[in-house]
Amino acid sequence: MDRREFLGRCTRAGLSVTAAGALGIGLYDGKPPEAFSDTTASVKIPDFSIAEMKGRICIARGTDRSATVRQAFEALGGMKAFVKPGERVLLKVNAAFASPPALGATSHPDLVASVVRLCIDAGASRVTVTDNPINDPASCFALTGIGAAVRQAGADVVIPRASLFQRFTVDKGRLIRDWPVLFDPLARADRIIGLAPVKDHHRSGASMTLKNWYGLLGGRRNIFHQDIHTVIQELAMMIRPTVVVLDGTTSMMTNGPTGGSLSDLKPTGTLVVSTDPVAADAAGATLLDKRPDDLPFIAKAQDAGAGIADYRSLDLKEIQFG
């Protein structure tokens, strides 16, 4: 018998047994799998707020969005106070519906473009604009005019797609658990600015800067409409923005959030820039002829520590323009 071959065979058999044993015992798992594989632990959304800018709010009266928003930021110390040179800025707009800007269901392209320019002027290295709308994303950015306006102003539009979402759990949250969130743009930003129009909302009473974060959720998010105020509260816990811009130049008074008729709109000539989204929404409620108490999500967001509803107690500046 060939001794060399026999030894070779023995070695191979020994190696195989060792390898199989190592693999089998190494990967052995005596416990059954968990009911849910929790993949969410790794994903964290950073806090985008700036500590020293806490509690600043400016209520600006005016009808020209571009000029008013510029003045409002000026009153809070200029965009430079929020965006440092080289930082990447994400604008979360409301582009929920494929409807023209005149119907007021979405962020106005003029306003978005102005904020983009302010950021670029402040030295932002990259400005991106995103939203996960209700209608087809591409059509929404095209028909609202936001897509063209921001590209012209020098920003990129991120159209959401499946791979940009990550499963995320709001710490101490009840509803947003292991839920797909439009995470990629958030992970690639140093600052986030929320831009929302003032709108009536059938379910929550009003859709303003807090409800605007709904557009970062993916999946079957409509299920949350069963408990809309709590989900807005959790959204307020999920995103701590650098600053929010609430556009009440015209407000959608009825048939929100879609509207659809010019008669739903009312000129209210107000624009709020605030580092406190709860205060911004409380101020915006008055434009819809509502009190902040009428909107339970405001108190809930305040309870969660997302801001202060009594905006008059904050560092409030009121300016009149044009």
Partner: peptide, 8 residues
Amino acid sequence: GTLYAGLL
């Protein structure tokens, strides 16, 4: 990626 209990 795992070998469950009795399958050893």
